[in-house]
Each structure stands twice: as C-alpha cells, then as structure tokens.
Amino acid sequence: MANEVLELEGINKFYTESLHVLKGIDLTVREGEFIALMGPSGSGKSTLLNILGCLDKPTNGGYFLGGQDVSSMSDSQLSSIRSRYLGFIFQQYNLLPQYTVVENIEVPLIYQGIRLDSSTKKRCEALAELVGLGHRLDHRPMQLSGGQQQRVAIARSLVNKPQLILADEPTGNLDSKTSLEIMVMLSRLNEMGKTIIMVTHENDIAGWARRIVRMRDGNIESDEANEPWPLPEGAPELPVHLLEGAA
C-alpha cells in the first residue's frame, strides 16, 4: 500500500450556526491516486477542496497533510504549506497578466523563498516545454489560447514538486478537444506518480480518474474505484525526461 498523502478525520465546516456545509468527512488519499470529486452544486465539494487546499480551515476535525496537522495552523503557516506541498489548477487558469509564461511558472518559487537564478529559470523553461509551450516562453497570458493558459497553469502547479495537485474544474472553460488534451496531460502526470484531486461535475471528465468520490449535502455519498478511460490512440507522450529533476 502506498503512503498516505493526506487524511481527513471528521471534518466539519459551519459557515453560520445553521449552515452546516461539511458533515464529518473522513477521507484518506494515498500517493499516486487520481481522484475525481463530484457532486451537485451546494454539495460541499468546493468547500472541501478549499480545505484540502489550505485556503480554508475546518470548523473542527483533523486534517493531516504529509503527517502534519494542518487544521490548527496559522495563516502564515498555511501559506507556507501551500507553497511547499500543494499545486493548484483553476477553472479560470488564474495566470498573472503582467508576467510571461516562464515568470508565471516561477511565482510559487518566490513564495517558497527560493532565490531565482538561471537554474530555476531553466527548470521553469523545462516545465513549459513539458506542457508543450517551449516555443512560447516569453508570451504573456493574453497572447495565449485558453488551453495554452491552462497548460501554463499545469506547469506552474508542478514547479514546487507538490505532494498533491488540486484541480478545480480544470476543463470548465475549455472546448471538448482542448479538454481532452488537458485530461490526457493530467493522466500522464498521474501515471508518473503525481497525486491529483480534481473537482468536476462532468461524468466524462471524472471518467479519467482512478477513484470517484461523490458528495451530497455535505456527506460523502459514494467512494469507489474507477477504471479510467484509455488514452486515445496516438495521444502524445509527455517528454518525461524533462520532468526528471524539474518537478
């Protein structure tokens, strides 16, 4: 059995006294898993993702990430956890408009306190190449298509060698063809051993995961293994050699 990446123990979240959004969630995630978190709106999946992403704190319950109890940490400790252990991919891509592709990929390093030099730059360029943007290093987000922006975001989420990648509707703003590209890329990353938790409400997209967790009214309704879609014929291989040492 692979190592645990995180463990949730009886996570409760109240927004107000009567608004009980998460009702005692227990969840264990192991290294190399690819989980799709599904559920109708209001089911609490976004709140759960925020808590998993250390952007929000549970009202009570335990959250252990890499063996550390995260649920009682201060704001600045949580920031540090985010910068070291987590990678984020958003529906809106959320790149910084004033930065180039490479600079966007560098941002998490800055907040880890890493000094930017030619070696970090090289690594970020390798990551850009990994997601197929080696020829767009100096472009700004506005000059890229949605799919390209999302690929930059994926590269960014890898730069700090995270234990866990959190993806919030990563294909929500993309057409089906581009969505497929992105999902193939995420599957490849998972094959390479990356742990991914993805929120989605589309069954098609969730089908790429190896485990599907369904939520309803703040409870986990079902949690079952899934046989992921096979990779399409001729799906591009990731240039894995670039990832070695880079992520």
């Binding site: 600045s76 959320n94 998490p108 907040y111």
Partner: peptide
C-alpha cells in the same frame, strides 16, 4: 483582488 487571491493560493503570506 484576483491577483491577490492567486498569489495567496500559490503560497504568498499576508506579509508578502
């Protein structure tokens, strides 16, 4: 505001 949110998610502390 959004930029602040992105930076915070990527690990920026309040002090940053």
């Amino acid at each position: 505001t959004r930029e602040v949110g992105i930076r915070r998610a990527l690990g920026a502390k309040r002090s940053d």
